[in-house]
Design a protein around this nucleic acid. Structure first.
Length: 426
DNA sequence: GCGATCAGCT
DNA sequence: CACAGCTGATCGC
């Protein structure tokens, strides 16, 4: 497609139409409350969530696109200075609430930009997306596919989110007296939390901003900010550290659960070992001295569960077979294990002729990986001394006496607190 | 004093 | 590992 027409998840000057796949921070770099570079197209749900993330956003620039429907745009071709018609259809990406992929069609042919997506063919909803896409393609191949290649390596395989959710339930149910913290981001993994709440008939604590997000998403009963109402808490992933867990364990026995699609690289089960043993074992895969130091420190238990909002390799393979792209590019290039998807899918029947070599920066895999958070992470709660000692000039002291920089304090004023101290309050 | 951006970390 | 995102420092206004 010609330059200067549209941008997807890019927010630099010079396009006539800007498309947002979903509201995760790595796809909104450059997007701010003061946005004025052009119309922003997104899904209905993203449009609903966007003003919460970007207060004061000029809503007259928002263009809502419904999934499964073709929308026509008349744009000005920069080269020929003539009108050109672009059609676009969003398809649910099943990545996080509001996430869509975009199928474009015009005199350039067709272009499919997946954004981040999970192509989970075992789910009913995903099959609707599949039918939608098949119908839209109408037997044609996609000219250019921009693919979420996050886990585009045969060594990446993980179960469906439904199965992973069941594992989480199992872990919580087998620790009936423990408190539980689950690491999540600002958006995503709601289905997992709802599943836990329904099966275990329990509410789930979230921090105040996350509760607002839950309300925007239409969840009214399940979530709470009152710690006394539940033993299960979803906490910001960045504050989910070994130190945090140790701090919590001084108050009450607590386990941590990390739902993560992180390289769960081909990790065959040991003989006679079931999946849950494997999960438990992951905790003990630390280096010997790390295990030793942890054993001394109150035996915190951290479980990671392969709950991924990105497609695994098999799913990517299926997807590529379905859309039969003539050209293909990965959209995740920062990865240190970036591999051009055509390296793996180039041999598929008739798919992708312009075979490019791999940039194989990535190191040997195959060794079992430690699934436990690092011990040297900083203390986030009630630690005045460390930050004060560094002698910063212009900061502020938060509600619980935690030092904040000037920047941090102003961010907090704009958008509210979001730290672990909330857990100790009630 | 404010927002934007960057490095650093998880 | 690298997900998605926080934190503090610095710069320009």
């Amino acid at each position: 497609m010609e330059r200067g027409l549209i941008s997807v998840d890019r927010w630099a000057e010079g396009s006539q139409a800007y498309f947002l796949t979903h509201l995760h921070a790595d796809h909104t770099q450059g997007l701010t409350s003061a946005w004025s570079k052009g119309p922003l197209f997104c899904s209905r749900l993203s449009a609903k969530l966007l003003p919460f993330k970007f207060p004061g956003f000029d809503l007259s620039l928002l263009r809502v696109l419904d999934v499964g429907v073709w929308h026509s745009l008349s744009l000005l071709s920069p080269s020929s200075a003539s009108e050109t018609l672009v059609r676009v259809m969003p398809v649910d990406a099943h990545h996080c609430p509001g996430a869509v992929m975009y199928l474009f069609s015009g005199d350039f042919g067709s272009l499919l930009y997946t954004g981040d997506f999970r192509w989970e063919m075992t789910s009913e909803k995903a099959n609707r997306s599949r039918d939608m896409l098949v119908k839209a393609l109408n037997g044609n191949r996609v000219n250019t596919l921009y693919l979420d290649n996050t886990y585009c390596n045969p060594s990446y395989s993980f179960p469906s989110r439904r199965d992973a959710a069941q594992q989480v339930v199992h872990i919580i149910a087998s620790h009936p007296k423990h408190h539980v913290i689950i690491g999540i981001d600002t958006l995503g993994k709601e289905d997992l939390l709802v599943h836990i709440a329904r099966v275990l008939k329990i509410k789930i604590w979230v921090w105040p901003e996350r509760l607002q997000t839950m309300h925007i998403l239409g969840f009214d009963e399940i979530f709470t900010t009152k710690t006394s109402l539940t033993r299960v808490r979803a906490v910001p992933r960045y504050s989910f550290t070994l130190d945090t867990l140790e701090g919590l364990n001084k108050i009450h026995p607590t386990i941590g659960i990390m739902p993560s699609g992180l390289p769960w690289a081909s990790k065959p089960l040991h003989r006679n070992e079931n999946f849950f043993d494997s999960l438990a074992r992951s905790y003990y895969n630390k280096k010997a001295h790390e295990v030793a130091s942890m054993e001394e420190r109150l035996h915190p238990e951290i479980f990671t569960v392969p709950y991924s909002d990105h497609s695994c390799y098999m799913e990517l393979h299926e997807f590529v077979q379905l859309v039969q792209p003539i050209n293909m590019r990965g959209i995740v290039s920062s990865s240190s294990c970036y591999i051009d998807p055509s390296y793996y899918f180039g041999h598929c029947d008739g798919v992708y002729q312009t075979f490019q070599r791999v940039q194989h920066k990535h190191k040997e895999r195959g060794k079992e990986r430690v699934r436990v958070l690092r011990a040297e992470s900083s203390v986030k709660v009630n630690d005045l001394t460390d930050s004060m000692r560094k002698g910063r000039k212009c900061g502020a002291v938060g509600v619980s006496g935690v030092y904040m920089s000037r920047t941090s304090a102003s961010r907090r004023r704009r958008r509210g607190a979001k730290i672990m101290e909330d857990i100790y309050a009630d």
